[in-house]
Amino acid sequence: ATEMRVATWLPPTHPQNTDVLPTWGKWIEEATEGRVTLKLEYNMGHPKDMFALVEDGVVDASWTFHGYVPGRFRLTQIVEQPGLGADAEAASVAYWRVYEKYFTKANEHDGLELMGLFTHAPGQIQTANPISSLADLRGMKIRLGGGIQGELGGRMEVTPVNAPASKVYEMMQQGVIDGTFLPVCEQKTLRLSEVAPNLTLLPGGMYLGSFAIFANPDFLDSLDPKDKEAIMKVSGEKLSQMAGQVWDQCGVDALKASREAGVNVVEVGQNDPMAKQFQTLSEGMDKVWIQSVSDLDVDAEKALQELRDTARNYKPNVAAN
């Protein structure tokens, strides 16, 4: 059997490594009747190196966060825009369809074969102290990732602190930061429930994060054409949907565990003042994004509209696996 080496990061206990990639591997093995198997390789380097490792054939496939390589990936920010109001599964399916239809020609994933696109569950506000209004965040030291979070943080006038997500626990506990924007899943995976015991859930969350799963084209071409076809069949939308589902589930589990651990979970209602505040605050960010990609030969506005329609009308069918 041919081994497909997939470089991965995050701890081996993260759902991406216990569920998403192994399930994909099982699909591949079944589809190729055991001729291709999947092997996870840890510690290959920083998440931002994954694109290059695959392109240069050091490993055969990998996955990573687009935001680690700013500048190169601008169209992928389509799914991160605030106000999508969908969970990760719906967003991932819509994202894959729209990206394929509108953006493939821009060739952002040059040198790579795109196998799947997905998002994490919506980013939420996780703080040391409770907040009753977005204005409470003003001047707070908040750890922010790049891209869309930076823009949101700027509009909320927080004191931005930049650090990798893996350092958030340490910084929260020491009080170097007062809070962070991250998906609920990280309450569990980064043990944030211990240090950020106040979770403010805005309806539909604040933003999403864009991830890709990709493979080396030469590797795929080196396989028997019928095996390659079989692999492609269990990738794409099917893979994207499954990944979104797993990341949603992680958030659901984490929320339950956090509640049991006594975390103060505030669910902001659609018509609550804080939701309204957020809407006002994030208004026009999508326009800024559309403007920022206007030099590319794509219809970003139409794509965004279609993404929103698809995601909001998405009906989860029977679980793919």
Partner: peptide, 14 residues
């Protein structure tokens, strides 16, 4: 040699 060298160079750079 590209694969092996690329592995090394990504370690060097990061």
């Amino acid at each position: 040699w590209h694969g092996a060298l690329a592995m090394a160079s990504s370690r060097v750079i990061s």
